[in-house]
Write a protein that binds this DNA or RNA. Sequence first.
RNA 1: GCCGCCUUAGCUCAGUUGGUUAGAGCGCUAGAUUGUGGCUCUAGAGGUCCUCAGUUCGAACCUGAGAGGUGGUACCA
Length: 489
Amino acid sequence: MTETFRPDARTPRGFIDKRAADLRAERRIIEAVSAVYERYGFERLDTGAFEYADALGKFLPDSDRPNEGVFALQDDDEQWMALRYDLTAPLARFSAQFWETLPKPFRRYAFGPVWRNEKPGPGRFREFIQCDADTVGSSRPEADAEMIAMMAEGLEAVGLPQGQAVVKINNRKLLNGLLTTVGVQSEPQRLAVLRAVDKLDRLGADGVRYLLGEGRKDESGAFTPGAKLNAGAAERVLAFLGAGREDRGATLSNLADVIGGSVEGDEGLADLAKIDAALTRMGVDHDRAAFDPSIVRGLEYYTGAVFEAELLLETRDEHGHAVRFGSVGGGGRYDDLVARFTGERQPATGFSFGVSRLAAALRAAGREAASDVRGPVVVIVFDPQAMGEYFAVAAELRAAGIAAEVYLGGSGMKAQMKYADRRLSPAAVILGGDEIAAGTVTIKDLDLGRALAAGITDNRQWREDRPGQATVPRAELVASVRRIVDAVS
RNA sequence: GCCGCCUUAGCUCAGUUGGUUAGAGCGCUAGAUUGUGGCUCUAGAGGUCCUCAGUUCGAACCUGAGAGGUGGUACCA
């Protein structure tokens, strides 16, 4: 007794199938953002999906679990390879590998899927698309300013004008200066403070105060241990977080009062002042790009400016509940990434848009009305003997630039009409014995037919009226179909 | 990773204190309609009741473990 194995038809968790409408939305975002990058003088670079794991590994969050978080496999020469988890690590590898031959500073952009082997959540997948721009080889704060300007312009280009999304800017040097002045002792304590700071927008000042001190218990009863700062130090951190003002200049001078004095803090302030000046001259004002002391981003990676694109739009899920979308992109200065390969410190700055997240955000905001993808003109197979004629018709239409196909299923005419309907075809071409004998062709405008059907309740009338249908001389086929197709688009 | 909730047809969901052939709506396929997508009527197909183990004469239903989903939380290069 043999039993045939039948696999479950299912997608691995965190992976999704995308159909034409989703892909079109993503492509539109990629094209809009890429055009911005190119206008700023960035060249496109594609690298492979896999990198050697050691080229990615060092910047994983848990260095004691080297391959945690990535999809890794062993090549037949025993070397570990891993799917890229972002586009920056491959750029660091590429820059190190070809440094001598590259124009410096090297400005490149890239887009494509990246993979992270971690628990998926709402709007979080194990495969998603990023669109990334970086400058390697410039330590000027103006290089950071340019990144911020491109983020702001990119948001605009995908349909999120001023007021619907904003770029928030901070500098890790400020945070480091702050940590020094409040007397943070150990690395774990430093990380705990940064994590607490990062949660300001979600938990508010009170929540952060607990996390800076003894810890915080949330509604679910879970306890998050705190950074164990004394009360004075915690208040100092909170004062820093509250230093944002109505424009970038005012925020800067206010921050100087809170943080001024530490060497690193002053450096950070000087960098931000230059970024502010460059942004202003590029026409990027405070409503598009603001200084926000609570922005932290990745803990290990960034060494200077950090920035994050945040959605301000109110979005709702399919049940009508408000959804926080938060960050749709981010980046910053990472001066140590290339040095891993060459030993030579190479200043770099860059950022990514999360294309999948942006697409989801625009959809949730009702911006990307999930408009349906229209199908081709369907040539109905009425008489199998006339197959050659049907393909000639399709070829004529295609030569005229009209998407067309001959129905290749085995069903009758009714099912074929239904097929064309479901494909959202603009028109069906009917060529039966009567038409062939008469040298004519019948063309049905499916949209018009649908509209007329609403007013017909009687079946006999529906059948006799044949709404939206016209029979024309065979020679007028292309012209007639074109009129219908043009009216659709 | 931790905590809560959920899992029955393609989809949304009913389901008897544990008792024979597990249901509905929508969708799908087809017929009524010799060459027409809608409407109406009719018929048909479609189910390891998430999986495994246990309790029981008997489990979709009770117990345990696991998987998947979902909502928080942690992490997020």
